[in-house]
Write a protein that binds this DNA or RNA. Structure first.
Length: 712
RNA sequence: GGUCGAUUAGCUCAGCUGGUUAGAGCGCCACAUUGACAUUGUGGAGGUCACAGGUUCGAGUCCUGUAUCGACCACCA
């Protein structure tokens, strides 16, 4: 055993290997695109800079790395650009919790102070996040990394805002927004969640009508009563008819409205409306040009319209209102257990209190139409294909997009607002001081952009649209790989911005992976305590094992159950590969004088069989069937190469056919390492280095050509 | 209420364009220490591919319906 490399006398140890090899790749600048070949580009969905990577990150990094490494080995100019997301609302919430623990509040800090604190916090965490991406073996080009708050990003996002305003695609408008009174900001629809809730349903006497409501505390200002035009029960009342009636705080004049949005079968078929605090009511008021009054302020407290209850929080007010109604004999009945869905803030669970606010909106219809057209023209391929339907459904049912957020941690909207005439306009150079329409003073908009407004432009921003050479070389990108939960949050916005800004789709293929769940298929969550951290799994089993566990058996778009035992199984596989290498390399080292001969007929056939496997695996990779490719390699290496070929070689290597067999084993190990490299980059690179003395080519595996029958 | 998907071995899931006795991992049972590997090897048990129809020479694979589960969407106060 004198000539056997020292490493091969010991078991494979990922902890001793992976960090060293990653450094070798990175120091050798092997992640940067090389050559002048066909370009292949993936833009990494930027992980949140504020925390640790979770299993979902591990999955997408593995998938994107497989694609990138495969493309690189094929000789393409492969570029995978990493990023870090400031994750506006998300991060601010994390930071607010931190402040809360310290007994502080963001509402007591200056904007600038808060921004700087969160920036420091984020940049500190960013390094941590990047280190975790590296540990997963990501062969992304760090020299091109972008942070979502980089100055050039912020500037370009501002220019897009102005361009869209000039093109009449952005307007400032009074609209009902989802308002979270805890966070003091509006939210987009995708940032809210419906929660099933059981509440009492109150039946109240409203003049001659009985109305049903779950929210009596909003009813102070209600002076319109709405019925369905076809409802015969109320045929005696006509649209626009006025009625005098006794209400919570005394007599009021109510107006009858007929609108077919009313469900005749719900409650009594009559409702009163609160346009300021309900989306449906707002639409009714808009249709009939009704007046609107604010009842609840932005902190969730009642305004003076509530009379002696003004200043009370909604929850406290309800009981008192019921007392008042009771005293006036206006409560007809109360149904105790009414089951309904309540819109809540997806972060804090606070019930959304819709509010009317002046905000910036993007007109979605014309933009969405373009996106639909591009997809129908097959300019974008979806994997799996059914996601295409979901995309189209989403794009065909758009509503205007509220891009204003009342949070500090984000890209400031470069605009000026005139409070006098409530107009607003972009002001990239911060020059406008007086309102062009009413000559009033203009103030700087204090709102920030919705995160998706900037991340929707990510493929362009990352590549330095419009002038940078990278943009010219690598745009449109090849694949966008992301979670299927982002098929409507993120993907459509990227398509829209891509088409709008560049006239081209931002990527030709969208690959959507599923969620990574726990071993039982349950969603991982901190409250359930079933969160599996990739970091721990790597420490225990190695990155390569984790990567295989994430890929094998995982079809695109489908959720994955990640069991510890599965990762363990692929650690065993790594061990198997190591021992295969140990056997073969030892054999070669001990017979250094072996001469290359023609393969025997049998060995030739065996090589052909191996080539057939490579061909299949190549086909699977071409069609994004990573799960099949990985499984086939696993199966071949373990049950063909190890179990059959090596076993029988123990005899054959003592016969005349030894040299042919040595050559066969060498070629198969060589090809196996190359095909397996995208999946298990570390161990394959390590074994490759041990095989190097037997090679004519001494370069690292990461930049070695993909095996074909011609180069085996 | 709507959309999409799932239903295959004890568990978690593959099965790509329909084609011989339905596969993997883990688990289970019985043996085994031979030039790498016990993080192992050999062999084995275990499935009416949810149900009912249909298309076809042939269906787990295509079509229709039913049931159950799941995810997502939705202005029923």
């Amino acid at each position: 055993m004198a000539n056997v490399p020292d490493k091969l006398t010991k078991p494979y140890d990922p902890a001793q290997t992976e960090g060293r090899i990653y450094k070798e790749w990175e120091d050798g600048n092997h992640f940067a695109p090389q050559g002048k070949g066909e370009s292949f580009t993936i833009i990494m969905p930027p992980p949140n800079a504020n925390g640790d990577l979770h299993a979902g990150h591990a999955l997408f990094i593995t998938l994107e790395d497989i694609m990138t490494r495969y493309a690189r080995m094929q000789g393409k100019r492969a570029l995978w650009v990493p990023g870090a997301d400031h994750a506006g609302f998300e991060t601010q919430i994390v930071y607010e919790k931190k402040l809360e623990k310290e007994g502080r509040s963001r509402f007591k800090m200056s904007r600038e102070e808060l921004y700087q604190e969160i920036l420091a916090f984020t940049l500190e965490n960013k390094t941590n996040m990047e280190a975790q991406v590296r540990r997963l073996g990501a062969s992304c080009d760090w020299s091109r990394e972008k942070f979502t708050l980089d100055p050039e990003v912020v500037a370009e996002v501002g220019r897009t805002f102005k361009k869209m305003f000039d093109d009449d695609l952005i307007y400032r408008g009074e609209r009902i927004v989802n308002w979270c009174s805890k966070h003091g900001t509006s939210l987009s629809d995708v940032e809210t969640e419906f929660v099933e809730q059981v509440d009492p349903l109150y039946y109240l006497q409203y003049g001659p009508f009985v109305i049903a409501t779950t929210r009596p505390e909003t009813k102070f200002g209600d002076k319109y009563v709405v019925t369905h035009p076809d409802d015969e029960r109320y045929a005696n009342y006509t649209h626009g008819q006025q009625l005098e009636l006794e209400w919570i705080n005394g007599p009021i004049t109510a107006t009858v409205i007929k609108d077919d949005v009313i469900d005749m079968n719900f409650g009594t078929g009559v409702m009163t409306i609160t346009p300021w605090h309900d989306a449906t009511d707002f639409e009714i008021a808009k249709r009939h040009n009704l007046s609107k009054e604010q009842i609840i302020d932005e902190h969730g407290k009642l305004l003076p319209v509530a009379g002696d209850l003004a200043g009370l929080k909604i929850k406290e007010a309800r009981a008192k209102i019921m007392e008042k109604l009771q005293a006036k004999g206006l409560i007809v009945k109360v149904e105790d257990k009414y089951n309904h869905a309540v819109k809540t803030c997806y972060k804090c669970g606070t019930a959304i209190e819709p509010q009317i606010r002046d905000q910036w909106f993007v007109k979605m219809k014309p933009l969405a139409d373009q996106a639909v057209k591009a997809v129908n023209d097959c300019q974008i391929k979806f994997i799996p294909d059914n996601q295409r339907k979901i995309f189209l459904y989403w794009m065909e049912n758009t509503i205007d997009w509220n891009i204003s957020r009342q949070i500090v941690w984000g890209i400031p909207i470069p605009a000026k607002i005139c409070d006098a005439c409530r107009s607003g306009m972009p002001d990239l150079e911060n020059k406008i001081t007086t309102c062009p329409s009413c000559s009033g003073p203009m103030r700087t908009d204090t709102d920030t952009f919705d995160t998706w407004f900037s991340s929707g432009q990510w493929p362009q921003l990352v590549l330095g649209y419009p002038d940078h050479a990278d943009f010219k070389t690598f745009y449109p990108t090849s694949v966008m790989e992301t979670g299927h939960d982002l098929i409507f949050k993120w993907v459509p916005r990227m398509v829209i911005f891509g088409l709008y800004l560049t006239g081209q789709v931002p990527f030709h293929t969208v690959y959507l992976h599923g969620l990574v769940n726990d071993a039982k298929g349950q969603k991982m969550s901190k409250s359930k305590g079933n969160v599996v951290s990739p970091e721990e799994l790597i420490n225990e089993f190695g990155t390569d094992a984790l990567r295989m566990a994430l890929v094998v058996g995982n079809t695109p778009g489908t959720d994955l159950a990640l069991a510890r035992d599965k990762v363990k199984a692929y650690k065993h596989f790594a061990n198997k590969l190591w021992n295969v290498a140990r056997f073969i390399i030892t054999e070669l080292e001990q017979n250094k004088d072996w001469v290359k001969t023609d393969l025997t007929e049998i060995d030739h056939l065996l090589l052909k069989q191996f080539e057939a496997v490579i061909k299949e695996v190549t086909g699977d990779l071409e069609h994004y069937r990573f799960h099949l490719a990985a499984e086939k390699l696993y199966h071949y290496i373990w049950h063909e190469l190890a179990d059959v070929l090596i076993e029988e070689s123990k005899i054959i290597l003592k016969t005349d056919a030894a040299n042919s067999r040595r050559q066969l084993l060498f070629k198969i190990l060589d090809g196996s390492l190359r095909t397996l490299h995208p999946f298990m980059p570390f161990i394959t690179e390590e074994v490759w280095s041990l095989l190097t003395p037997h090679h004519s080519n001494h370069q690292l595996l990461i930049i070695t050509p993909w095996p074909l029958s011609s180069n085996l």
